[in-house]
Simulated assay, not measured.
Amino acid sequence: MLAVETAQQKDKSVSLDNTSRSGRQASDDLVPSRYAVKVGEIEVLVVSDGVLPISAITMTTNAEPAARAAWQRDMFLPDTFDWPLNAVVVRSGDQTILVDAGLGADPDLHLPQAGRLIQRLESAGIDLASVTDVVLTHMHMDHIGGLLVDGMKNRLRPDLRVHLSAAEIDFWASPDFSRTAMPQGFPDALRAAAARFLVEYRSNLRTFQDECEVAPGVTLRRTGGHTPGHSIVRLSSGGARLTFAGDAVFPVGFERPDWHNGFEHDPEEAARVRVRLLRELANTDELLVATHMPFPSVGHVAVAGDAFRWVPAFWDY
């Protein structure tokens, strides 16, 4: 059962620490920024951290220009468009889990439409002190930046558990950007954010090698590819399933899973991971949510010849 909560309508079936008793959305929000889903007994809230402008070239670095232009026309996209940023709050048993933490605030990158996760959690009535666990798919700045906002750590529990793969921590000790094609300024910003994160949260870290269970029905599994320690989150309860894919999947990756993204540190392995994951999701019919799919990023994967097709779920009011 899917449920949406907007400023006008509130889903009474999803608690998530007073979400259903929430006030209004932030006054500058002109669109819904949170969407509730039930996965068996597990409660899920997809929360938008906003958007950031990315060029089509950055999303398709190995594509022929004509093929890229054709895809843009088919998708009605300009050369530069707003890239969604989604995070997820999960309630399983007595644990409240934040999956990724958004971009935060980096004044050098000038991204005023991003970094809104904290205000939107507050708008949803979610007390940051109620978060027992944070799961990080990887350590790119748009996934850890929200944890680095001034005063954020003081609002979180001292015994907060932050889960991520050991391979990811090892990678950021000396990160390799030689195979990426990021916009100017991002490599330096990513290095700085990762270094600061490891200093501020080292005592909270709970690492794993290949897979770990964070809470009942909530499993974290390392895929690699996008970064060496990139991981996905699998939810399973009462016969229902949902996967949060982090940056394993991008909008163009269904039709052209072989196209590389400029933020991938191992583009060829990232493409192999993408194909394996999309095949698996198409076979299981489970729900998919991903960081950079259009909000609320809830849908299914279908096979389309030699590629795949994204099937958005109908919003349930």
Rank of each mutant, 00 (worst) to 15 (best):
2 L>P: 03
6 T>C: 03
7 A>M: 05
13 S>V: 13
15 S>R: 05
18 N>E: 13
25 Q>M: 10
30 L>F: 15
36 A>Q: 14
40 G>Q: 04
42 I>G: 12
48 S>G: 12
50 G>P: 06
55 S>V: 01
63 A>G: 11
64 E>L: 07
71 W>T: 00
75 M>N: 09
76 F>Q: 03
82 D>N: 06
83 W>D: 03
92 S>Q: 15
92 S>A: 15
93 G>F: 11
96 T>I: 10
96 T>K: 13
97 I>N: 04
99 V>A: 02
109 L>I: 03
112 P>G: 09
120 R>V: 05
127 D>M: 03
128 L>M: 10
132 T>V: 01
133 D>E: 11
135 V>W: 06
139 M>H: 00
140 H>R: 09
142 D>L: 00
146 G>T: 01
151 G>Y: 00
154 N>V: 01
159 D>K: 05
163 H>T: 02
165 S>D: 03
166 A>S: 05
167 A>L: 12
170 D>P: 01
174 S>M: 03
180 T>M: 10
183 P>T: 09
187 P>Y: 14
194 A>G: 15
196 R>G: 01
197 F>L: 04
206 R>V: 14
206 R>G: 02
208 F>P: 01
208 F>Q: 05
209 Q>I: 12
212 C>Y: 02
212 C>A: 06
216 P>Q: 09
219 T>R: 14
220 L>H: 10
224 G>D: 11
224 G>K: 01
234 R>Q: 02
236 S>Q: 05
237 S>I: 02
241 R>W: 00
243 T>G: 03
249 V>L: 10
256 R>C: 12
257 P>K: 14
258 D>R: 10
262 G>A: 13
263 F>P: 00
264 E>K: 00
268 E>Q: 15
271 A>C: 15
273 V>K: 11
276 R>G: 10
281 L>C: 08
282 A>P: 11
284 T>V: 15
287 L>G: 10
291 T>L: 03
293 M>G: 10
301 V>K: 04
301 V>S: 05
304 A>M: 12
307 A>L: 06
